[in-house]
């Protein structure tokens, strides 16, 4: 049961979750900062759109992703036509699905952390001549780093466990798009219980280890 399928699936899961988390880090931090700092029209609407995947069933998210990014999709058609990129039935589809469902966790957690930074410190940085962006990188982000880290941990955990939206958009192709959760489903559906067992144990151990690391390094400063 520790065969090539198993290692491929584990490697694929980690690869998808890492790339998705990287994207979530950049986009999520940017959006959270935008929401926390800059007043603009349509903020509430954008916030709603970003947060929606948190409450929608993953299959519904997957459906929307097909509509947008599928070969005939609004964006997917042009991606395919101009750049020759297609996310359907490709591991990048799994990344996209994980990204969309993990993003709101990062944005919500990080926004709260950024808003908790003493506004006088930000005002002080402004009066000392620093732009909003410089202030973000030198004052706000360093002071909110624990919240940002917590957001990343949640996003990574969500990404590695992504199932529904991935299945819809990327499919369940062994060695290509079948991440651990999908492989568990396949193994259980075909009655290979010892195989299912191995997958579950490894995924649980991996998640527990990750959570322990998060607790170790993401703790608030007063409890050290």
């Amino acid at each position: 049961m520790w065969d090539a399928d198993f290692t491929t699936s584990l490697r694929l899961s980690i690869q998808v979750a890492c790339v998705a988390t990287l994207l979530v880090a950049v986009v999520g931090l940017g959006l959270a900062w935008l929401f926390a700092t800059i007043p603009f029209r349509g903020k509430e609407l954008l916030d709603l759109l970003v947060t929606l995947p948190l409450v929608l069933p993953p299959t519904v998210v997957g459906y929307y992703l097909i509509v947008l990014f599928g070969r005939e999709g609004v964006i997917g058609f042009w991606l395919d036509h101009w750049l020759g990129i297609s996310v359907t039935f490709h591991w990048s589809g799994a990344v996209l699905a994980s990204f969309v469902v993990a993003l709101p966790l990062m944005v919500k957690t990080t926004r709260a952390a950024l808003e908790a930074v003493d506004s006088n410190l930000i005002a002080a940085a402004y009066t000392l001549g620093h732009s909003r962006l410089e202030t973000a990188f030198r004052v706000t982000f360093p002071l909110a780093r624990r919240g940002i880290f917590a957001g990343l941990v949640l996003a990574f955990a969500r990404a590695i466990g992504e199932f529904g939206a991935t299945l819809m958009l990327a499919g369940n192709i062994p060695g290509k798009t079948a991440t651990m959760p999908l492989s568990i489903f396949s193994a259980a559906a075909s009655g290979e219980w010892s195989r299912t067992h191995a997958y579950v144990v490894v995924l649980t151990a991996f998640s527990a280890l990750f959570l322990a690391l998060a607790n170790r390094y993401g703790r608030p400063p007063e409890s050290n």
């Binding site: 003493d118 006088n120 410190l121 005002a123 620093h130 002071l143």
Partner: peptide, 29 residues
């Protein structure tokens, strides 16, 4: 904008950057 005004504002709660040393707080400016 505050950045363009050349003011020195001393806050009631000091507003020192907690993640910077004394020297870094000054060098930030």
């Amino acid at each position: 904008r505050p950045q363009q005004r050349e003011v020195g504002l001393l806050f009631q709660d000091y507003a020192l950057f907690p993640h910077m040393t004394v020297r870094q707080n000054l060098e930030f400016a």
